[in-house]
Nucleic acid binder design. Structure first.
Length: 233
DNA sequence: GCGACAG
DNA sequence: ATCTTGTCGC
């Protein structure tokens, strides 16, 4: 999918303090309501590492959306590598993963109407998780699907598949804690960009098939973390 | 000052 | 995230 013309949405040589300042400037640009075109394709994005972390491997997959529900047909798969440029710092994940993620997305021929990202969206201390940051950059609707909590509080979630509770922080709802599989650790779903809380949750539910992760993220996950080196596609 | 802390 | 064996489920 095409990348937007270069914009001051990201910088690769920032100190932690500068990165935090940038997040505060970008957060207000995140759109929290639905501005989504009819969904035909949904992409999944995830990052993995090789060479003890020296190489970052980004994976992007595109699935054809079917009203009939999953399993969806995978129509594109891309793996893109580049040297790792920043360490992992809680709250600054997007600065470590977004560069490679953009590289993978730029190599997709299809432009999806929705992108699911492994990580938080709004459910971030400054409301700019990796899903939001990537969404801003690509100017495409995104939803964050994380496997654990970064911030916020929530009541206990029911143990049955489909049960969910709000994730809140500082008096506002920042996401949803969703039990995607009975008796399995819940998912933390939050809007990335151009999507509402309700729609973000619904799309994740609609993409659940038989595993803990929704299909877009699951497919990207397996590509990004394969221990042997998948070339491309 | 003491924890918590996406991937 | 990654390092790891066997094991349970579809």
């Amino acid at each position: 999918m095409p990348l937007l013309p270069p914009q001051p949405l990201h910088d690769w040589h920032l100190t932690p303090g500068e990165a935090v300042a940038l997040q505060k400037r970008l957060a207000p640009r995140v759109e929290r309501s639905d501005r989504i075109a009819p969904v035909r394709h949904i992409a999944g994005v995830d990052i993995g590492f090789e060479d003890s972390g020296a190489t970052t491997r980004a994976a992007a997959v595109v699935l054809k959306w079917r009203e009939a529900g999953p399993p969806f047909e995978v129509i594109e798969q891309v793996v893109y590598r580049e040297p790792t440029r920043m360490p992992y710092i809680p709250g600054l994940l997007s600065f470590r993963e977004t560069p490679a993620a953009l590289g993978a997305c730029a190599r997709l021929e299809t432009t999806p109407e929705l992108v699911m990202v492994d990580g938080q969206g709004l459910a971030h201390p400054r409301r700019l998780g990796v899903a939001s940051h990537l969404g801003l950059w690509l100017d495409v609707p995104t939803v964050g699907v994380a496997k654990s909590r970064l911030c916020g509080r929530h009541a206990e979630v029911g143990e049955t598949r489909g049960d969910s509770v709000w994730l809140e922080d500082k008096g506002e709802r920042i996401g949803t804690v969703l039990r995607s599989r009975t008796r399995v650790k819940p998912l933390y779903v939050s809007p990335g960009h151009r999507i509402s809380q309700a729609a973000a949750l619904e799309w994740v539910k609609r993409c659940l098939y038989r595993t803990k992760l929704p299909e877009p993220t699951r497919q990207a996950d397996r590509l990004a973390s394969r221990r042997d080196g998948p070339g491309r596609r």
